[in-house]
């Protein structure tokens, strides 16, 4: 979970990383040491699943926003996904 947190945190602070993520999400996340399950969850915007797995909700929300997910959509996904 530390690597996922670190990735999401740096996404917010590093515009170059955000750009790299947009052009090649898989490789960018692999470079950060995220496992395949985490990569799938991020690409699928499965925020609820990540939250339930122990992701910090502040870091998750800010990371989502910097992935280009509006706050409203983040919260809808957080509430509705099973």
């Amino acid at each position: 979970m530390y690597r996922l947190h670190k990735f999401l945190w740096e996404l917010r602070r590093n515009p170059e990383l955000a750009e790299r993520f947009r052009s090649d999400p898989d490789q960018t996340m692999r470079d950060y040491g995220l496992n395949e399950e985490e990569i799938r969850a991020i690409k699928g915007k499965e925020f609820r699943k990540l939250y339930q797995a122990g992701a910090n909700p502040y870091i998750l929300l800010f990371g989502a926003v910097h992935m280009g997910v509006p706050r409203q959509e983040y919260y809808e996904r957080m509430r509705s996904q099973s």
Partner: peptide
């Protein structure tokens, strides 16, 4: 309050 969580709001 709840931030970033399903209960937010």
């Amino acid at each position: 309050h709840w931030v970033g969580a399903p209960e937010s709001g």
